[in-house]
Amino acid sequence: MSITATNVSKRFGEFVALDGVSVECPAGELVALLGPSGSGKTTLLRIIAGLEVADSGSVHHEAENITHRSAKDRHVGFVFQHYALFRHMTVFENVAFGLRVRKWPEEKVRDRVMKLLNLVRLPEKAERYPAALSGGQRQRIALARALAPEPKVLLLDEPFGALDAKVRTELRHWLRQFHDESHVTSIFVTHDQEEAFEVADRVVVMNKGKIEQVGSPIEVFEHPANAFVMDFLGNVNKLPVRVEGGRALFGEKHRVELPGKLFEQADGHADAYIRPHELDISRTADAGNCMSAEVVHINPAGSVVKVRLLAEDFGLMLNVDLPLERYRQLGLQAREAVYVTPKSATIFTPDYAI
């Protein structure tokens, strides 16, 4: 079951939450709505669910217009950030609740609940109460409860936001595997870029009530549509540059040419965005086209070592991600003088702010 929202707008007083937004979630895909707080992603999800009424626009399941249907008639499952489990009910009764409301026969209720508890890998918790479960287990039960009435679409509003980092990582892997097994069309709201890229088939990047870009995780990361998307997707170094004759030049006294990805800016001021892995560190300036800098801080982070540098001549702090092998080769120490070379950069005209 595909789901489409077309030209959806929504205001809360003077605040524009959504401004003519259109988005499609193809059948069987898991789509992430990604953006900062206030971008409109949760409002869009609630309008799709029927929990909010749009000022204008429409929502369709396949070719069926459901814009004016109530939430209970839209056949959607909704998973909230804070579980919303009934504390006085066992796990079994929580999952069975929606089926009993719909007056399913008791035998079908038992079969359906146990099938779902097996699917979320928690059949042994059927007679426990929510208070006896971990946060990750509660969220999996919330997901089973949302799926119990066989919804056409599953909607998840920052479902892992209340969990600690380790459990979040585990549940991301689990949700992706679960989706591959269940094939339920799903829309997932998050402000966590890593979460969206790891879980989703398609990412919709939102900002200030509008859609900035739609694409697969690799498309959005490798080919950001504009400066906002580039800056929002993870840690980047932002450098003010001057475009002259198709070249991006940084610095005044010492000028460094940045190897920019394709850009067509007219001559003038622009911003260069360089991801930490697009910078290299060396002990000599032999390669040329480099900046002198001092090592401020070194943070080993698994297979990557994060190095923070001060390029004093340029009035700039830089973040560099070095492969562990390269870091060991250099043998860096804090307060050491080094040279930084940009390997790649993406250039945009400065026209936005987060």
Rank of each mutant, 00 (worst) to 15 (best):
Ala71Gln: 06
Val91Thr: 02
Ala126Arg: 08
Ser9Gly: 05
Val205Lys: 09
Glu52Cys: 07
Val320Met: 08
Ala272Leu: 10
Phe221Ile: 10
Gly245Tyr: 05
Phe188Asn: 07
Val189Lys: 09
His223Tyr: 12
Arg308Asp: 06
Tyr83Gln: 04
Ile274Ser: 07
Asn207Arg: 14
Ile354Arg: 15
Val220Glu: 00
Asp267Gln: 09
Ser282Ile: 03
Leu171Pro: 03
Gln177Met: 14
Val184Thr: 03
Pro224Cys: 01
His183Ile: 09
Ala32Glu: 02
Ile141Leu: 05
Ala301Ser: 15
Arg145Asp: 02
Ala131Thr: 06
Ala301Leu: 13
Lys208Arg: 15
Val241Asp: 04
Ala301Tyr: 06
Thr43Gly: 04
Val199Ala: 12
Trp174Ser: 05
Arg172Thr: 03
Leu310Asp: 06
Gly268Leu: 04
His269Trp: 00
Pro342Asn: 09
Gly209Asp: 01
Ala334Met: 14
Glu150Ile: 11
Tyr352Phe: 15
Glu252Asp: 11
Leu332Ser: 00
Ile347Gln: 08
Ile298Met: 00
Glu312Arg: 15
Ala131Tyr: 12
Val236Pro: 05
Leu116Cys: 09
Ala148Trp: 06
Ala32Arg: 04
Lys210Ser: 15
Leu99Asn: 11
Leu322His: 03
Ala266Cys: 10
Trp174Gly: 02
Asn235Asp: 12
Asp267Tyr: 02
Met114Cys: 09
Ala311Asn: 08
Ile218His: 14
Val307Ser: 01
His88Leu: 09
Trp174Met: 14
Arg87Met: 10
Val53Arg: 15
Arg328Ser: 13
Glu294Gln: 14
Gly77Glu: 02
Arg202Thr: 15
Gly246Tyr: 02
Val236Trp: 07
Val204Asn: 06
Glu198Ala: 15
Asp267His: 10
Ala270Pro: 10
Arg255Asp: 03
Lys261Phe: 12
Ala32Ser: 12
Arg102Ile: 01
Leu324Met: 11
Phe228Leu: 11
Gly315Met: 07
Glu62Gln: 05
His82Tyr: 14
Gly331Ala: 01
Arg275Gln: 13
Val338Arg: 03
Gly260Val: 12
Val256His: 04
Gly28Val: 06
Phe92Trp: 12
Arg242Gln: 11
Ala84Leu: 11
Phe314Cys: 08
Lys253Ile: 09
Phe12Gln: 08
Ala272Cys: 11
Glu62Arg: 07
Leu147Val: 10
Asn319Ile: 09
Asn226Glu: 05
Glu212Asp: 07
Val16Leu: 15
Glu195Asp: 09
Val236Asn: 13
Ala5Lys: 08
Leu122Lys: 10
Pro323Phe: 04
Leu175Gly: 07
Arg121Phe: 02
Met317Trp: 03
Val256Tyr: 09
Leu316Gly: 02
Ile3Leu: 08
Phe15Val: 15
Asn289Glu: 02
Pro26Val: 05
Lys72Ser: 14
Leu156Trp: 02
Leu175Ala: 12
Phe15Glu: 09
Gly234Ile: 04
Lys115Ser: 14
Met114Lys: 08
Gly40His: 02
Val167Gly: 08
Val203His: 03
Leu330Glu: 00
Gly161Gln: 04
Gly57Gln: 11
Arg308Gln: 06
Ala272Trp: 05
Glu219Phe: 14
Lys152Phe: 00
Gly234Ser: 10
